[in-house]
Amino acid sequence: MQPLFSETGLKRVEEVARAGLLCAFDFDGTLVPIMSRPEEVRLSDDVRGKLLRLSAHAPVAIITGRALEDIRGLLGFTPDYVVGNHGMEGVPGWEARAAVHAQQCAGWKAQLTGLLARTPGAEGIEIEDKRYSLSVHYRAAPDWQRAAVFLDEVCAALDPQPRLVAGKCILSLVGVDAWHKGNALEALMELSGARTAVYAGDDVTDEDVFRIKRAELLSVRVEHRPDSAADFFIPRAEDTERLLDELIARLAACDARNWLRKETALHQ
Rank of each mutant, 00 (worst) to 15 (best):
D159S: 15
L191G: 03
R131F: 13
L188S: 05
N183L: 02
L185K: 10
L151T: 00
T113G: 00
A122P: 14
R211N: 08
A166V: 03
K130F: 14
P142K: 03
A157L: 11
L173D: 14
W108Q: 09
R225P: 01
V176W: 01
A147W: 02
V198N: 14
R118Q: 06
F210L: 02
E216Y: 06
A102V: 15
A140N: 08
E126K: 15
R225T: 05
L164N: 11
G167L: 15
A140S: 06
L173H: 10
R131A: 14
L171T: 00
V198M: 03
G121A: 07
V198G: 00
G182V: 07
E223P: 12
A99N: 11
P226R: 14
T205F: 06
K109A: 12
A157D: 09
Q161Y: 07
V204A: 09
A98H: 09
Y138S: 09
H180S: 05
T196G: 01
V100Y: 14
F150W: 02
L134F: 07
R118C: 12
A166S: 11
A99S: 08
V209Y: 04
K130Y: 01
G107I: 15
R97N: 13
Q161N: 05
A187H: 04
V176A: 01
A200M: 09
E128T: 01
A140Y: 10
Y138P: 09
Q161F: 00
